[in-house]
Write a protein that binds this DNA or RNA. Sequence first.
RNA 1: GGCCCUGUCGUCUAGCGGUUAGGACGUCGGCCUCUCAAGCCGAAGAUCACGGGUUCGAAUCCCGUCAGGGUCGCCA
Length: 486
Amino acid sequence: MRHIMDKVRVRFAPSPTGFLHIGGARTALFNWLFARHNKGEFILRIEDTDTERSTDEATNVILDGMRWLGLDWDEGPDKGGPNGPYFQSQRTPIYRQWVQKALDAGLAYRCYATKEELEAMRELKMSGQTKTAYDRRWRDKGPADWPADQPYVIRFKMPTEGICVVEDMIQGHVEFPNDEMEDIIIARADGSPIYNFCVVVDDHLMGISHVVRGVDHLNNTALQIHIYKAFGLTPPRFGHVGLIHGPDGKKYSKRHGAVAVTEWRDAGYLPQVLRNYLVRLGWAYGDQEIFTLEEMIEHFTIEAISKSASIVNPSKMEWLSQQYLQSTPPAELVPALAAELKRSHNLDVADDPRLPAIIKELNTRSKTMLDMASGAVFFFARPAAYDEKADAKFLTSDLAEPVKFIFDGLSALPEWKEESIQKVFEDTMAKFEMKLGKIAQPVRIAITGTTVSPGIFESLVILGRDESLVRIEKMVKHIAAKATEK
RNA sequence: GGCCCUGUCGUCUAGCGGUUAGGACGUCGGCCUCUCAAGCCGAAGAUCACGGGUUCGAAUCCCGUCAGGGUCGCCA
């Protein structure tokens, strides 16, 4: 029997306590892909019930990161929707209502245990003497037992025997013994609700059909399933994705490299690159490495996500990035290059018509937009100085005449074209019996200041006649000065 | 410590009872070459964590061991 409730509705529910982590981004991507693949809906919900740690700034960073990656949400912040609000901090009345509901139905109870008592019980559990960290001492107490004017929290009554089975879409069949289940706190002493409870209420109210999240939540699942059942609700389907680790096998963190998606962006990676890298981390479609967005959506399935943790491999990321730079039509890369030139070199060249040609020369020589920008700088700015090592190694005094000869030949050129420029070099090679390598290097240093650049003819063409000649003339003088010094 | 998860080349992975265990990144070698790249060709690299089973046959199924990870908050 099919009805509207069969619709796939998934969510990404970050807590705004920091940046958008690479693991979170992947979880968001998986959810988004799952929604798009199934023509379902993707909801973004901000889990900011921890008012101490949540900030608006972090929320904005997360939202920006999502937008940058192209993960648009059907309901959520900014956009709104029929199941809002989408900030948990704005849903407190709803949670309070449900807490009351639980209390009234006898599913939850007041607990007056003190911090010290809790601490002692927790130690008992850690030392293996008890199965739960709270001994349920207030579970069967009533109003007559409640101390006056004492703070209390609300705990949820969990089952004490039997097992809880989770048929996980990724992890498979998982069983949890119920006698290990904690009577978790669902509302703090100040009445504010807590995560495990809010999630259930929200996922239910928002009609979430599938919950895809990191395995670090697997243990919570049993607890949440019980809350659903206690309220007589049907839990969604769950899928727990393996975590992302650093090279040392520990949960991926700052010391392993770039964690925040903004760091990857600032390192010059295109959003489609990060998206492609992330989708292949823990997921595969045969041997395919590169996917268009459409292909990802078409082929993505939760079942194909691997259970194990995966480690980020920066060099593969670089390779992927270069693949994208190479295969993207140069014209499409113009805005990104211009932006990067502005950002990292303070160059305002967005309107320069040579940009596509420059990109064409640089796209096989760049791993990131950052690389491409630094490779492009010499087209817009004269080298401040010649690289010292290059100067010593290549700018030898025997080059004085050949370089002058090239300068004269280029100056006399009627047309500034690749073929005619090449002809000048060939004439020079013949006249002085030198190989192109010997003769090209000083010219390269003249126009770039370094020994690395795109092909010398292409570079000269793009640089333009006047600027090229100015730079080469300077080199003529530089080498001549060296010759007289001797 | 309890509970839970994971375990195929260094890394990402394909594989789903019968394969010379495939691909990708990286590494190494060669070709090309005006520098740097790119590209092309080739190589090394996995006793499928280990030990038992089941089976004619196991990376694939079962059990155990070990190793790694996650989780045990009035955080999410």
